[in-house]
């Protein structure tokens, strides 16, 4: 029984972890159709923000929950103004540009902080016990904050004026523009928000995974696979994709081993996209956000 509880908890964490690293990409790629290959580096920058801030004496919660999204959100807005806005609708060009940006950011961070960074940010919560089994209390916190974050994004998109304008702009930019919406600004804000969410995710994961200039590479593929598998409804899709792929990954990791966990995730995504080329929400929950 303890084991079931411990494994159930781990599954929930694997799923939340996948959802957390994918949400920022879901906004930028799922909503705006910008293939952001620098997504992993946004996560990495969030992690570095936390490390630099805590080393400078900032409280770790302030660093993770406020500074990381703020700093990366600002970087996101700058990137959108300088690079992305010239390339809307030119998918391959954005792909190359953001790939270049990704390499640039890795290079910059490496030259500033070195190849490996002393990150003594320990997970700031204690241990939770299931009988003979234990897990990190911080993992529970990450599961809860992922749920809260999804809820917050849903509220923003569904009930605020900004959410309505953003959804309208993404659906039909010309129509939105002719109705007096400054689509230019909406694009900038949406990209900035996506980057901020990525920065928050990277900051939150820093105590669990540590930060390295190249850590983004371990996230990027999984985030894209999750968002593409999820399909066009960004929140329902990312949630469904994370549950399916993360669940399979977790179960196979436990039963067979990590190598097979990774294989199961990739195989499931291939089969899924063969059967449902438009992702899960291309067929189910089509009306959802």
């Amino acid at each position: 029984m303890d084991l079931v509880a411990a494994i159930g908890f781990q599954l929930a964490y694997v799923i939340a972890n996948l959802a957390l690293i994918s949400l920022g990409l879901a906004i930028i790629f799922g909503m705006m159709r910008v293939i952001n290959l620098a997504h992993g580096e946004f996560l990495m920058l969030g992690g570095y923000t936390v490390v630099v801030a805590t080393n400078a004496g900032v409280n770790v919660w302030v660093a993770m929950l406020i500074l990381a999204p703020l700093v990366v959100g600002i970087i996101g807005v700058i990137v959108e103004r300088v690079l992305i806005r010239w390339l809307y609708g030119r998918m391959v060009d954005t792909l190359l540009a953001t790939w270049g940006l990704s390499l640039l950011l890795v290079g910059l961070v490496t030259s500033i902080f070195g190849a490996s960074t002393a990150t003594t940010v320990s997970p700031p919560l204690g241990v939770i016990r299931f009988g003979n089994y234990s897990a990190s209390g911080y993992e529970l916190f990450l599961i809860l904050i992922t749920i809260a974050l999804f809820f917050l994004v849903w509220l923003t998109l569904r009930f605020t004026k900004l959410g309505l304008l953003a959804r309208g702009t993404m659906q039909n930019a010309e129509m939105a523009s002719s109705l007096g919406v400054s689509t230019n600004r909406i694009y900038m804000i949406t990209f900035g928000l996506g980057a901020a969410v990525s920065g928050l995710a990277g900051g939150l994961l820093a105590p669990m995974t540590g930060v390295l200039p190249t850590i983004g590479a371990t996230y990027i593929a999984k985030a894209f696979i999750t968002v593409i598998s999820g399909g066009s409804a960004i929140l329902a899709g990312t949630t469904a994709g994370s549950i399916l792929l993360g669940g399979l990954n977790g179960i196979f990791s436990f039963v067979v081993g990590s190598t097979f966990g990774e294989i199961a995730l990739l195989l499931a995504a291939i089969v899924l996209l063969r059967l449902m080329p438009r992702g899960i929400t291309g067929r189910f929950f089509r009306k959802s956000l």
């Binding site: 964490y13 694997v14 972890n17 897990a135 590479a217 371990t218 081993g257 990774e262």
Partner: peptide
């Protein structure tokens, strides 16, 4: 147990 080089989540292994 073996791990691909890009694995960052070791939760299931810690349970094992």
């Amino acid at each position: 147990e073996f791990f691909p080089l890009d694995v960052t989540n070791f939760g299931p292994t810690i349970n094992k």
